[in-house]
Structure formats: structure tokens, C-alpha cells
Simulated assay, not measured.
Amino acid sequence: MTKWTANDLPDLNGRTVVITGAGRGLGLITARELARAGAHVVLGVRDTDKARRAVVSLPGAFDIRTLDVADLSSVRAFADSWSRDLDILINNAGVMDIPAARTVDGLDQQTATNYTGPFLLTNLLLEHVTDRVVHVTSQLHRQGKIDLKDLDWRTRKYNGMSVYEASKLAVVLFSLELQRRLSATGSEVRSVLASPGIARTSLAAHSRSNVINRFKFLTNAPELGALSVLYAATQDVPGNSYIGPDGLGGLRGYPALRRQGKAGLDTAMAGDLWKATTELVGAVAR
């Protein structure tokens, strides 16, 4: 069978895409390929100077804007400054297996970066989105456990990998509930999930699990990992689709329509998580 690659991207002229955390890694590759296909790509990043240096030699139309998804005031400022149609929002920014830390809002750093910040950003920008929201998750969501009474890891013992897994399960459940809400209103906007597999980027390379360094034969090259995101962002797939590598265990390979873990399809939990997250981050609408 023919494998889907970035060469199969459609013409994206006239389309606007926002990608969070796109100054390096999978986000930068995604930005590069979407711009090459004609999209106007907005990079929402913490370090704007670094992002400008990253794209300076790349062909295409780029706009660099300040956005720290772990800082709720930064998220609100970015959303408040947006006044035009937005075809595609890609929630790509993330951290993995980091030591315990708190944001300026007092939230768990890893959960805020991977889930609560993107949750707020999506809700605030949703009125502008015309096509879809892409959530970058992980195969490790299958090991995640959600505690609705302690989403922010205040009472549970902190374990970096457990927090990562839980945050990525929360992303999967967020997509499920978002799609339910969109469909209930008759909206044609889609919520789509993308897993890059275990990609060899700086995100995972420092993980204390050391999977990347020990078992490279199980991992995806960054260029391949980004294909799942590109596919999810541009192909005609149903709402709440899960796109991931077609190889063994969804760890490596080319993009294909896969299936979320069972816990990621729990509609009751998805609804309860939405409510709990709203209480955690505050108002999610203008």
C-alpha cells in the first residue's frame, strides 16, 4: 500500500493555521510543511526570537506570536488578540516526564502545558475556528489515570511519567467531549487527535524512562512523527478520529486511522472532566 507523506498535502493557500509550541521539534516540522503547502502559519511560542531564527530560511508565510500555554494570562491575551477566522488550531505544545513544578497560576506545570492550557486556549478560540482542532496526544494515554478530585496533582504522589500519561488521557477525553458538543450544535468543526508515536525529539529524550535511548528501533523519526499531525490537520476524517503510526503498537510508521484506548472513549468521564477543568482554569468563554 502507498504510504501517506507530506508530499500528499493538499493545496492550503488561503488557509490559516495556529500551532502552539512550534519553535522546534514536531511543531516546527509541521509548521514548515503546512507553509510549504501554502498555509499562513501562526507559531504560538514562548521564545519568539528563537522561533524567528528557526523559520527565517524556510519558504512560506509565518507569523510569530507570544504564547505560553502554561500561563493562563498568556493564553487569554493570545485569544483576546485574535479577531479573524482560524481554519485549523493545532495544540502541539507539550512537556514530558519533568520534575514537579508549579506555574505562575499555581497549577501543575506538566498538566497545564499538556492539557489545561490547551483546553482554555481551544475554548477561547473556538468561535473563530472554521475547520478543525487537532490535539497532539500520545500512545501513553492508554496507561493514564484521571482523578477528578485531584486533576492538579496536589494530594497524589507526583510521578513525572504518571502525570504525563494522565495529561495525555485528559487530551483524548477533551477531544471526545469537544466533538460531542460541536455535533450537538450542528457545527461542522471537527476535533481530531494525533499521536506521533514515540518520536525521537527533545521532548522525550530526557525522560527518566530512557526508552528513547535504549530502544531506538521502536521509535519514530521526527519527520515521520509529524506526519500524523499533518494528516490529522488536513485529511477528511470523522470527528474525534485518532491518527497514529501504522506500525506495531502505534509506536512508529506512517499515519493511519487508529483507535483510542478504552478509557479515552468514556463519555461520562469526558463530561465530568470538562466540568472539573472549567472549575480549575476559570471562565472558558469570552
Rank of each mutant, 00 (worst) to 15 (best):
V69Y: 02
S73V: 13
S187W: 00
R132V: 06
G117W: 07
W82A: 07
T122P: 12
H135P: 02
L124C: 08
G117R: 04
G60T: 08
V172W: 02
P118R: 06
R102G: 04
R142F: 00
Y164T: 10
L126S: 00
G106T: 12
A101N: 06
G106N: 08
F62I: 05
R156V: 02
M161G: 04
L107A: 08
D85E: 15
G106P: 14
R154N: 14
R156F: 10
M161N: 03
T130H: 02
T155R: 13
S175H: 00
G160D: 14
T185P: 02
T103E: 07
G144Y: 01
A184K: 00
V136D: 01
G106S: 04
P59D: 14
T137R: 05
E188C: 06
V136P: 07
I64P: 11
R84Q: 13
A166P: 11
I90M: 10
L107V: 12
A112Q: 00
I98A: 02
L89E: 09
V129P: 07
L140Q: 06
I90G: 05
W153F: 14
V104S: 14
L125V: 05
E165V: 03
G117V: 05
Y158S: 06
K157L: 13
R76T: 10
E188T: 15
L182H: 09
L107I: 10
S74G: 08
L151Q: 11
D97I: 00
R84A: 13
V95A: 12
V133Q: 06
G117C: 01
S83G: 11
N123V: 08
L125G: 01
V136G: 11
L178S: 00
R65S: 09
L182S: 10
S162N: 15
L148V: 04
R76W: 09
S187E: 01
R102S: 03
D97A: 12
W153R: 05
H128P: 10
D105M: 14
V172G: 09
D150C: 05
L173R: 04
E165K: 13
Q143N: 09
P118Q: 07
L169V: 08
R65H: 06
Q109W: 06
A77R: 14
Y164I: 03
D147A: 12
G160T: 12
L72E: 02
I146E: 10
D97W: 03
V75S: 06
F62K: 12
W153I: 10
N159Q: 13
K145C: 03
E127A: 14
G117S: 08
N123P: 12
L176S: 02
G60F: 11
H128Y: 09
V69I: 11
L107M: 03
T137A: 12
L121Q: 05
Y164H: 15
K157A: 12
M96P: 06
H135G: 05
V171N: 13
V69K: 02
T111I: 15
W82V: 11
S74K: 03
D87E: 14
S83D: 14
H135S: 15
R84H: 06
A70H: 05
L173N: 02
L140P: 09
D150R: 02
Q110Y: 09
T137F: 05
Q179E: 01
R102Y: 07
Y158W: 03
R102H: 10
G186M: 02
S167T: 11
